[in-house]
Nucleic acid binder design. Sequence first.
DNA 1: ACAGTAACGCGTATGCCATACGCAGTACGG
DNA 2: CCGTACTGCGTATGGCATACGCGTTACTGT
Lengths: 258, 258
Amino acid sequence: MADGGGGGGQGDGGSFLPPSIEAAWGLRERPSKGPKPGLTLDRIVDAAVALASAEGLGAVSMGRVAKELGASTMSLYRYVSAKSELYVLMQEAATGAPPELFPPGTGWREAVEAWAWALREVYHRNLWMLRVPVSGPPATPNLVAWWEKALVALEPTGLDAGAKISVTMLLGGFVRNDALVMADLDTVIASGGADPEEVLARYGRTLRRLADPERYPEVARMLDSGVMDSVDEPTAEFRFGLARILDGVAALVEGRAV
Amino acid sequence: MADGGGGGGQGDGGSFLPPSIEAAWGLRERPSKGPKPGLTLDRIVDAAVALASAEGLGAVSMGRVAKELGASTMSLYRYVSAKSELYVLMQEAATGAPPELFPPGTGWREAVEAWAWALREVYHRNLWMLRVPVSGPPATPNLVAWWEKALVALEPTGLDAGAKISVTMLLGGFVRNDALVMADLDTVIASGGADPEEVLARYGRTLRRLADPERYPEVARMLDSGVMDSVDEPTAEFRFGLARILDGVAALVEGRAV
DNA sequence: ACAGTAACGCGTATGCCATACGCAGTACGG
DNA sequence: CCGTACTGCGTATGGCATACGCGTTACTGT
């Protein structure tokens, strides 16, 4: 697929998308030849998403998805040219279109907060999404729509284009990372068979046993302070981080940035 | 690795950790019975790290690591009980002990900035680390040492224990996420055979072709503004995000938080 | 009407992967 | 000098993505 040295730039202006991704943008052409397909992309993607939701991304193998649909493994490759394509479509489907988050005229901070919470919700409903190996920048309709919403929310800030992009990336990254932590905890719980309290308690006990207080005085103080012993409200960490970031953005908007 | 002190052996029996992880804390006992081992954990971990650095985490299979060492696949399981253990040890080794980042008495902001940049450096030197599937919270010496350094950096803020933990998690997550974006870009480049400019340009072209300006007006404006057409200095995004977050933390420290 | 052909489902095969199991050899403690 | 704990490792199992090609189907141009 790598074009050779002599080939030069693609003159046709076309970056080739796999047919399945073009289908996601509504550009599919009905082939009108051959036998009628026994499956549809949507059915495949839905089955894969259901499987991921129920048993985690690890359960999503081509064979397993096919079995779920009563088809054979290889038949899926008539709809998708590789598993990574299925991943992209799964993310697009599970993300969905962004809801009405804020009426026009909403202040930027309130709007951005609504956006972040809504995105958090999407991730939390689909923790498997955080395990999908990356393939490229988001180039499917719903993902672009979420990005659009973030930019709209930032309209009232008056920041320039570059800054707005940077803020959306900072926020998106924050939300994603917060969800990733949740997904990791979830994995540990699922594989270790313990509730969150127990996982945290065990971690504290392990560290207390292993980490020499002379070498790690601050960590030791943390452990002794008891902060590690209880589980906060699950949104506390998100609330905290979001507030800090938005305070920082506010400083930029108001020209108080360092 | 093994510090000379040798102490720290809590006699409380119940050890929940796999032997290889205990070895990382210097708690290994020389078995002194059977034949002399032909390998060492360190050699195995080093080989795995070298492989990951050179060819990506995907190249790290038990068979491949063994081949690199001139041993058989299964012999590795005498040193490590599962591949996930190897992953943990690889991260611990590649992370290394945190360097001297700031002298005592340094202001919190400067100290935290130094910490974040140093951590970024670690990730960028070992992008494969961001692909390691998670197993649990960081419980190896070097990772705890990095956490300790962050807490020390935050000492002068006077924040309470809970807030300090939250700030370290926010910062750590930010650095990690920034590196993840870089790793993703790296993956795309490696698999697509194009330089960063080309990847970005292709992305812009694709979006321009697919994203209807009526449905995505702000995105369209972004694309037209030309911000997407050039590649910034690679640290620009990191610098921006870090400044925003630290401004937000500063507001908290100074009691100006919303 | 009918051949040509494109798209279909899918069986088979290849080459990876982690790892359970057990065997044969080794070196120290008694 | 023997038991035993430990070693390396060959083999086997069950999973995975996916390349390839076969037989079949249903539309299209003649």
